[in-house]
């Protein structure tokens, strides 16, 4: 575990999380959530959990983003908050 990488990526994770819940456009929120998942995957790779990291990269950043985009296209794209 390299703590410099760890702190930088942890900050990026938190920034992506705050951005994903504060953007008003739901498609943008979905893509930001994908970026959040990918940053989380990098964090786990740094911490030595490589199996969890590639599962998160395929399932969290891949399939979840596709689910979100599909759901947003079937419903409305704008959000009030």
């Amino acid at each position: 575990m390299i703590w410099q990488f760890d702190i930088i990526i942890l900050t990026l994770v938190i920034i992506c999380g705050i951005a994903a819940i504060s953007v008003r456009d739901l498609l943008g929120a979905s893509i930001l959530f994908g970026a959040y998942s990918f940053m989380m995957c990098l964090l786990w790779a740094v911490m030595g959990a490589v199996d969890v990291a590639f599962t998160e990269a395929s399932v969290g950043a891949g399939v979840s983003t596709v689910f979100f985009v599909a759901a947003v296209f079937r419903t409305s794209r704008s959000s009030k908050d």
């Binding site: 739901l26 929120a29 979905s30 959530f33 030595g48 969890v52 419903t75 009030k80």
Partner: peptide, 29 residues
């Protein structure tokens, strides 16, 4: 948040936070 998709994103962030907690317990310098 009142929007349902935002609530679901929040639920997922909470889940990944718990997973990060467990991975942190496994890490060693």
């Amino acid at each position: 948040k009142t929007n349902m998709v935002k609530k679901i994103i929040g639920m997922n962030i909470f889940q990944t936070a718990i997973i990060l907690f467990y991975i942190s317990t496994a890490a060693k310098y």
